[in-house]
Amino acid sequence: MKRWLIWLPFIAFAAVLWLVAAELTRPADRTVRSRLVGQALPGFSLPAAVPGKPGLDARAFRIGEPRLLNIFASWCVPCAAEAPQLAALARAGVPIDAIAIRDKPEDVARFLARYGDPFRAIGADQTSAVQLALGSSGVPETFVIDGQGRIVEQHIGDLRAEDVARLTALVKGAR
């Protein structure tokens, strides 16, 4: 047997070790990357969720103004928790539209009265059909949409304080 062959198991093990160590020391990335990022919003047209506020149409996103699309529900606790962050974004001048999922007008109105209303328009999605078309699997989720109606980012779960600056920059940077 050739001399160096004897070292083969050791070398193979060292290679595996190096690989695993590299993987272990790299901070784990747990973000779910949406396949819809870079794609156009699906077509939809939703009726108003509360009286006195317009409903939502997909065509309204193609007018050259980047903005956020928030998916929420009045029955959703993390949605209440992220309300201050949405309010902060609205104060920073970020336009926000919303879709209320499987909700009643009076419940949505009560929710907005209690936690604040940062939204310009709210569409009512009674069957989650639009939510599914967007590739959203729960509430709350927040999409960043550019001026051509393309999805720039999908944020799953409630917005935290540390997300506000990043999302503001994303919306301002988008065209």
Partner: peptide
């Protein structure tokens, strides 16, 4: 645990060689 693995398995394989 990885450090222990490197020590024991690597050591044993080197000793073997």
């Amino acid at each position: 645990i990885l450090a222990l693995l490197a020590l024991y398995i690597g050591g044993a394989l080197a000793l073997f060689a």
